[in-house]
Design a protein around this nucleic acid. Structure first.
Length: 226
DNA sequence: TGCCAGGCCGGGT
DNA sequence: ACCCGGCATGGC
């Protein structure tokens, strides 16, 4: 009889935290910078995002009003290093429209909204999906909502703790049902998943030296690409 | 030197 | 309801 998921998730966290320590996420100087970074980092290396944000900062545009009024083409040029720069310029504009028109450019005002309603509003925006929305809520708003990403899928399914075809919400629920709703815990947990995933999920042999290797099933279900 | 990165959307079955 | 191509730069 297997251990309860609560215990497993606790052990996973403990092992990752022991191995890597606090990750100090989100790497940003302001909550607005978190918003911008959350869009820019979609399917993109964080290093590239840093360059893009540096450009915005250097040009003095890393403020809601200024960024909102910057023409989309100019915005695109500044964020070029982040990749998908035309798409992301559009997506940023869409997000800024909500922030400016509904909340007067004030993040404090935005996060005063009921989390569920705000989450729904964010998901209405073209270019904001579940992970980006949850990242904004957690890392900019300190709202205890669990952020799932590809590494979460890989680790959880690889270990047999979730089906390979889990969708975003089932995984999110799995964590939120088994962890106390603590923004600091969710913050660290997600960041640690990214860390372990980057280090091990694509290396060969994949699980060599992984802090979670001891928790692998004897004959784990394998997906060659994961 | 290819392969990959902290997704999401839209169009086609 | 899926499935898939498109989007793009820079690092290793």
């Amino acid at each position: 009889m297997a251990a309860p998921l609560r215990d497993i998730l606790q052990e996973v966290f403990d092992r990752l935290f022991s191995a890597y320590g606090p990750q100090n996420w989100w790497p940003a100087e302001s909550s607005f910078e978190v918003l911008v970074g959350a869009v820019l980092v979609q399917n993109t290396n964080w290093k590239n995002v840093e360059r893009a944000i540096r450009n915005l900062k250097k040009a003095g545009y890393l403020e809601p009003e200024k960024l909102y009024h910057l023409p989309e083409e100019e915005l695109a040029e500044l964020i070029r290093p982040a990749g998908y720069f035309r798409v992301k310029a559009r997506r940023l504009k869409n997000l800024l429209r909500l922030l400016l028109e509904k909340y007067g450019g004030s993040l404090a005002r935005m996060f005063r909204q009921q989390p569920q309603k705000l989450r729904h509003e964010l998901l209405q925006i073209k270019g904001i999906g579940p992970e980006t929305a949850d990242s904004i809520l957690l890392y900019a708003g300190h709202i205890p909502t669990f952020v799932v990403d590809t590494y979460t899928y890989r680790v959880m399914s690889r270990h047999g703790w979730a089906p390979f075809d889990s969708d975003y919400y089932s995984l999110k629920e799995l964590f939120e049902a088994n962890l106390r709703p603590d923004p600091q815990l969710y913050n660290e947990y997600h960041a640690l998943f990214v860390q372990v995933g980057k280090k091990h999920c694509r290396t060969v042999p994949r699980c060599e030296g992984c802090p979670l290797a001891a928790m692998l099933p004897p004959e784990g279900p394998l997906r060659p690409e994961w």
